[in-house]
Amino acid sequence: MQVKVFVTPRMGILDPQGRAVESSLQSLGFKNVSGVKVGKYILLEVEARTASEARDEAKKMCEALLANPVIEDYRFEVDGE
């Protein structure tokens, strides 16, 4: 089962990449852009019988390795849900 994991800098944590991208976009004329955050997109194939089983596994993986809760938030989508 495919799981898509999105890891983004935590709210309130300085995100210099997001800030650099935002100011580049603005200097290109996209004056309407704000709140840019740069994160990671991780694709996983998880062997699981049900989507909820895959979801439990994905949560464990996020907490153990894929995201660092001090600086990052995560969310994920399980295919077929």
Binding site: P9, I13, L14, P16, Q17, A20, N68, V70, I71
Partner: peptide, 17 residues
């Protein structure tokens, strides 16, 4: 050490990139 939770906090990208 931070990742292993032996020390509090985390280290992330320099402000200057």
């Amino acid at each position: 050490l931070c990742e292993a939770h032996l020390i509090p906090g985390a280290l992330t990208r320099n402000r200057s990139l």
